[in-house]
Design a protein around this nucleic acid. Structure first.
Lengths: 130, 130
DNA sequence: ATACATAGATTACAAGTGTAATTATAAAGA
DNA sequence: TCTTTATAATTACACTTGTAATCTATGTAT
C-alpha cells in the first residue's frame, strides 16, 4: 500500500511548515509569512513550491489568476517519521540516549517533564494491562 | 572560539560511525566493517574518507603504505548537536512532542522508561536546588 | 631491474539543493 | 485592442552527495 513520503529538503520543509499553519494559502501568503523569519527572494519560494508540487507533497487549486496551495502530507506523520529516522540513524532506535543527551545540553521545560511523566504513566498502565 | 562542526552527509556518517567504534582504523578495516551491512564499493568508501578528511571530520597518520584514520569530532557532541538541530527544526525546540509522537509510534523499551525516570528525577532535584 | 599489485589522489557524472533570473501567459487598464 | 503587470513555468548555475572509475606512486615478487 501507501505512501513513501517524499524526501523534503530543509528549505522545502519551511514552506510546508507554513502550509501546515495556514491551509490553504496563496504564494504571496507564504512568501509574506516566510519573510518574517527568512530573507528569501520571492522567486526562491516559488521554486520551492513548484518542487513540492512535483514531489506531491502539496497541491493547489486555481483561484482566479493565482493558486491556493495545500499540504498533501500530514504534519503529524511526517514529524514522527523524521524523528524515527533520526533516532534510528543516531541511536540505533533507542529514544533514551537522545533524551539524556538533550537533557544535559539544554535544560528541559516543565511541559517537557510533564509530557515525560504522562508517557511513563501510560507505559506503566499498558504493562499492567498485558 | 570553536568549532562549527562540519556538515556530514548520511553516507559519510556511516564511515565516521565505524571510526567511533574502532579508532584508529585503516581504510580496509573500515571497508570490511561497512560491508557487513552495506554493499558499498571500496572506491566509494575511499571517496567518503577523503571527503571527511577535507571536512576535517577525521584525520590520518601514515602507516607504511596505508593510512590509519581517526575521528576528529567527538561522537557525543555530534549526536547532541544533531538531536538539537532536529528538535529545533521539527518541534521548535520542544522535546516533549518528539517523545510523545515516538512513544505512540513505536513502543518504548524498559530501558527507555528507566532513562526517562532518571531524567525526571534529576530535573526535580535541580528544581529543588534552585 | 622490471612488472604487477595495491593504496591513495584525482576525475567523473547524474541527481538533488539553494538560490534565483528569465520567459511565457493571462488579466486588467489605457 | 494594445500595453502593462502579476503569476506561474522554465531555465540557470554552483555546490553537495552518492557512487564509482581512472590515474599515479610505491612496495613486492620474479
Amino acid at each position: 500500500m501507501s505512501n513513501s513520503v517524499p524526501e523534503i529538503s530543509d528549505a522545502e520543509f519551511s514552506v510546508l511548515d507554513v502550509l501546515w499553519q495556514q491551509n490553504p494559502a496563496s504564494a504571496n501568503d507564504i512568501i509574506a509569512k516566510l519573510n518574517e523569519t527568512k530573507p528569501w527572494h520571492e522567486k526562491t519560494v516559488k521554486t520551492l513550491l513548484n518542487r513540492l508540487v512535483k514531489k506531491q507533497a502539496i497541491n493547489y487549486q486555481k483561484q482566479q489568476r493565482s493558486y491556493l496551495y495545500s499540504p498533501l502530507i500530514e504534519r503529524e506523520s511526517y514529524l514522527v517519521k523524521q524523528s524515527k529516522t533520526l533516532v534510528d540513524k543516531l541511536f540505533r532506535g533507542h529514544l533514551s540516549p537522545l533524551v539524556t543527551g538533550f537533557a544535559q545540553q539544554s535544560r528541559l521545560k516543565k511541559d517537557d517533564i510533564d509530557a515525560l511523566k504522562s508517557i511513563i504513566a501510560d507505559w506503566e498502565k499498558e504493562k499492567k494491562d498485558d
